[in-house]
């Protein structure tokens, strides 16, 4: 589904990422973890062509129209209502306003935001805005979902709840996902495979770990699975040695 081959990304003279290779198979949930500032986001930006790698290639089995990108910030248009924000992508895809907004309303309802369609982003809480952003992406029915620490700004309860809802969608729809995060527990509980990025500059893929926990998963229950603890400890040890300032959520 997604193959990143020997990608090097540089913003100045020195590369941020060097020789990055990773693969996410169809229907697989992959996570990319690494120290802050190691260039995790740059990989997603390279996949969506928001930046051009210095060298290497990105191969997708789907068109860019079938790729959904969930940003760290909700990045909703402040001058559009929740419904209009969700409808925007659908209208860009050619649906007329009425149909796009009707579908947007359905997506908002399915994410627990029935009756919130007329509200502007500043009238919504952080969790509600994040749900609108998720609806905006899922409404386009992507086959590949890229997520850049999408829930980092939320409190633990809301974060767990929304992660579980999204995981449910991903499992039901068999979506392929690449999640960038620095939360090791989140990475393990949601993923089939975890890639570890080394400390930048010139960050590389340091290791790859498979998470052998059956689906469907419950993000809280998963943490009690026998595989979870040893894997978490292994990743923690690996990254603690990698980063002089330990900033991983355990």
């Amino acid at each position: 589904m997604l193959r990143v081959q020997d990608v090097t990304v540089a913003y100045g003279a020195e590369p941020v990422l060097e020789g990055i290779s990773l693969e996410v198979k169809a229907g697989q949930f992959a996570s990319l973890i690494g120290p802050s500032g190691s260039g995790k986001t740059s990989i997603l930006r390279a996949v969506t062509q928001l930046l051009r790698p210095q060298s290497g290639s990105v191969a997708l089995d789907v068109s860019l129209d079938e790729v959904g990108f969930l940003f760290q910030e909700d990045a909703l248009l402040p001058w559009r209502t929740a419904r209009q924000n969700v409808a925007l992508g659908l209208r860009i895809r050619g649906l007329d306003r009425k149909e796009a907004e009707a579908r947007a309303e359905q997506w908002l309802s399915s994410l627990g935001l029935a009756g919130f369609g007329d509200r502007y982003p500043r009238q919504l809480s952080g969790g509600q805005r994040k749900r609108v952003a998720i609806a905006q992406v899922l409404a386009l029915q992507p086959r590949l979902l890229l997520m850049d620490e999408p829930f980092a700004s939320l409190d633990a309860i809301v974060r767990t709840r929304i992660t579980q809802e999204l995981l449910g969608w991903v499992e039901r729809e068999h979506l392929t996902v690449l999640l960038v995060t620095h939360d090791l527990e989140e990475a393990i509980s949601a993923s089939d495979v975890v890639y570890v990025l080394s400390q930048g500059p010139r960050a590389t893929i340091r290791s790859r770990h498979e998470v052998r926990i059956a689906r469907p998963r419950n993000v809280l229950e998963t943490r009690r699975h026998p595989v979870f603890g040893p894997l978490l400890r292994g990743l923690w040890d690996e990254l603690s040695g990698e980063s002089p300032l330990v900033d991983y959520a355990l």
Binding site: V67, E73, A75, L88, L140
Partner: peptide, 14 residues
């Protein structure tokens, strides 16, 4: 202009 909004719209296909 907020570049995050520009990127948001671009990734939606705009």
């Amino acid at each position: 202009v907020d570049h995050r909004l520009v990127e948001r719209v671009r990734t939606l296909g705009g």
